[in-house]
Design a protein around this nucleic acid. Structure first.
Lengths: 351, 351
DNA sequence: CTGAAAGCGCTTACAG
DNA sequence: CTGAAAGCGCTTACAG
């Protein structure tokens, strides 16, 4: 058995202490870099650790000290590049703090989320960064508070009584709509998809408000499928019919990519016949042709912010709940163009 | 202090045992679902756990039993969608086994990788899935063996004396080159980028062999930058000059996306004037226009395979080293077309 | 099937 | 600055 052999030749702090002719307590102080130890003693102990091949046993330390240098990250979806960048930001900050992240994927399912949160608790994480699955109840967060488990919500929120790092979607929608209106568009649609949660609601509300503020009809909100290929197939919803639009704001860049492909298949030239504005500004926005105009939401920075909120709360549990709501920034590229005033000249492309 | 309050009202197994009027050992058996406990006793204990709000302390169990139900995953890069899909596969299998993954990002730096591996060891992970950073020495893996830390290499390998889950890049290159040759291409370039490691080498060797096997010149291997925008700018390397190619095989889909954009900017129509074959077949391949012909490498399946190898090794440490080398599959779409025999008709697009 | 005891490897007061 | 002792919450033999 691996565990047996590993246990057999495990060298403990006591071994190190004996080898250095000091007490175990002293050796422990050396490890934790306490200033109470003389340079000489420290050197002796460190030499002993080296010679014996000592490995710090964080599990034992955790049991005694009740901290694990471990934080849990619960994300609803791993394959969306947006979440990946978020994760990268979290990982950077947590890692720099000498801690480690346990990552789990809720699949946007509250029941799975429940299981996973319990699991993290049993694993003794010091805190949790949660992007709540759709339909997460406020009570979930309250329960975590009862558990004394520090929590920060990221990207989505279900309560104000808990730290939150996210995006000001309303501002982003104003930027997107404002840009298109300046270009002369008036019939602007909003292409949405995915589960409904606070970020979804805020984008929809933001779009409506932005349209109303400009005296435009705010209800051309159209749901598209979730899979890339299916989104492409739904492009016709925007380019035909009576209330045809000349521009569409997309829920995120995944939708924008899909619609871009679909409009191409319909023979519609984006950035000339039709305007498209994405949301999030993931790496692909710059790589598309025509390049995608998109509202940058800086997921990596948000991840960093969330991690910092959590680190702060770990040291100062009694801080009032804080919000870090980042203002997005419009990146104007090629997919949005001045309203041509003409109809959509359509030529069927090889779909 | 959070930890104090958490400690204060922590209910332990002993509390549960008392409340259920059994011994601590019996309560422990119930938790671990031992069949040695009568249904009646089990129900009594479970009721007690429920009433008291007992939370299993995995840290304590780990200390005693020397297993942590935790595995470490070391990845060189989080933002490449390829690695994200790999991670998703790993997470699925590990999660289904009731375990949890600790994720770290080496940034493809051996020194950081070293630090992180030590950290995971201190955290007491049961095993590690490692995609070795470029320039990782074989000795690293040997050292892990001395640590008695079960390891599986994924995607890249530095030794045969250790489990490995990856891709048969050679076969993939034969598929890509073969496909282009069938379409009549003879001047085929290979666009590479990124750090050099086993997977890099295997792709390069695979390309060379595939070309040589068909009597073609195998050395048009061109390095492009790593950033998407810079890749696009380098497209001219392939489309001009004396040894001009009519088709290019890409190191991965990131390169393919970049070149696709760059060729567009040069006014070259892919799938007509020029053929492009990607590698990996990430989600974007299907979303591009023209759709990208690509060699699918199934990163999610590889992640699952790697996790299963590790799980097996945990239970059977004495198994000989195993290899899981998955055959890729060519997905023919629109970016590859019959050789036109004409030059590249070029019209400058709005770059 | 159950109970009493020892121990996993560390940290934490508490004396000195 | 150092040492001896207790304890974190569990699991593991070992008797019964």
């Amino acid at each position: 058995m691996v565990s047996e052999s590993r246990k057999k030749n495990r060298v403990t702090l006591l071994d190190v202490a004996r080898h250095a002719s000091v007490s175990r307590a002293t050796a422990s102080l050396v490890i934790r870099k306490s200033p109470l130890v003389s340079t000489e003693t420290r050197a002796k102990v460190e030499a002993a650790m080296q010679e014996l091949g000592y490995v710090y046993n964080m599990g034992a330390a955790r049991l005694r000290a009740d901290k694990s240098l471990t934080i849990g990250v619960v994300i609803p979806n791993l394959v969306n590049p947006f979440f990946t960048e978020l994760l990268a930001g979290i990982e950077t900050v947590i890692d720099a703090a000498g801690m480690v992240v346990i990552l789990v994927n809720s699949g946007d399912l509250v029941t799975r989320q429940e299981t996973l949160l319990t699991r993290m608790r049993e694993h003794g994480v010091d805190g949790i960064i949660l992007c709540p699955a759709a339909d997460t109840k406020m009570s979930l967060v309250e329960r975590m508070a009862e558990w004394d488990l520090p929590l920060v919500q990221v990207l989505r929120h279900v309560t104000d009584d808990c730290d939150y790092a996210g995006v000001d979607y309303g501002v982003g929608m104003h930027q997107a709509v404002g840009h298109l209106v300046e270009l002369g568009h008036r019939d602007i649609a909003f292409a949405v998809h995915g589960p409904v949660h606070s970020a979804y609601q805020e984008r929809v509300d933001g779009f409506r408000e932005a349209m109303e503020a400009r005296g435009l009809y705010p209800n051309t909100i159209i749901r598209v499928p979730n899979q890339m290929a299916a989104i492409a197939d739904s492009a016709e919803l925007f380019s035909s019919g009576p209330g045809r639009s000349s521009a569409v704001v997309c829920f995120n860049d995944v939708v924008a990519l899909g619609l871009s492909a679909g409009l191409y298949d319909l023979g519609i030239t984006i950035g000339r016949d039709f305007s498209l504005v994405g949301f999030d500004d993931v790496a692909d926005a710059e790589a598309m042709r025509p390049r995608l105009t998109s509202v940058a939401t800086f997921p990596e920075a948000i991840g960093e912010g969330a991690a910092k909120l959590l680190l702060d709360r770990l040291t100062q549990p009694d801080l009032p709940p804080r919000k870090l709501v980042k203002a997005p920034q419009l990146r104007i590229r090629q997919s949005s163009a001045r309203w041509s005033g003409t109809g959509l000249g359509r030529v069927q492309n090889s779909g």
